[in-house]
Amino acid sequence: MSEPVLQVRRLNVGFASRGRVTPAVRDLSFSVKAGETLAIVGESGSGKSLTAFALLGLVPPPGVVSGEAIALEGRNLIGLPEKRLREVRGARIAMIFQEPMTALNPVLTIGEQIMEVILEHERVSPRAAKARALELLAQVRIPDAERRFHDYPHRLSGGMRQRVVIAMALACAPAVLVADEPTTALDVTIQAQILDLIDTLKREHGTAVVLITHDLGVVAEHADRVLVLYAGRKVEERAARDLFAAPLHPYTRGLIAARPRLGGRGAVRARLTEIPGTVPGLAAMPDGCAFAPRCPVAEAACTLALPPLVPAGTGSVACLRVGDIHAAEPERLSVVHA
């Protein structure tokens, strides 16, 4: 169980135009073990969704994927021909999307769509596939599965659709499930149901989950490890508990402080900590640390060279000032959350 099922090494994703490639994800490495949830957190433009698509070989042109490896159970997916990729996709690595409707075919019943995934990857009879599909619908807690089997996607609510997409993703018991903002389009009470469902299925099947999200609350409650992306680069990766107890990178700290916390406001309203400015555009990436222009503790050296990822506790962080921050405000790190 300790061997990672997915290992990404030095992944690069960029956009090609007029003979030049503008990098969007740079030098990204991470790994996920069976039964583990790795959350990839970032804001728009961080490259988190692009990373998700790259894992499944789904980056559309003009996107270009390169790098050392996307090793899924020991097999490198980078450079694999489309035909071989298709054998892997849906069988060993599957994906669920932000908007479930985009992943469903409106003219097929949900039962047919789940059966299709099974028949595509396994030599089983349609009868067996149907039995499996019904079982999957029950597994994702769709009530009255027998009847729902014959429903078309538009007849279902957003939450039910996402359950169907999850059933399709899990149809062939993949080793890795990539969930790209799976609950962003859903209401908060439905979000809780779906995230709990993913957790339960992960525990039951030992699936490795890559959870792409912008919501740190979701991460705190559902992830084992957290990878923070900023402008296409990993700035911090730690065990979730450690990261929220003592975030190291100034960006991670900014993200946590910028978010109003439920039940966190007393009678007097403390100002939210702002991160000034906005994420730099792909075409205008600053030299050195991409966060330096917005960073409260940046110094001249930060704008000169890229900060290397250095080991820190249960993970790593890429910040030149991280040692100084530690020394200057040890108390702050310990009281981020009581």
Partner: peptide, 17 residues
């Protein structure tokens, strides 16, 4: 109860609606 939060102690939440 359904709002996911940072700083939860990992104790199980009330089950979602």
């Amino acid at each position: 109860d359904a709002v996911p939060q940072i700083g939860g102690d990992g104790a199980p939440r009330r089950p979602p609606l």
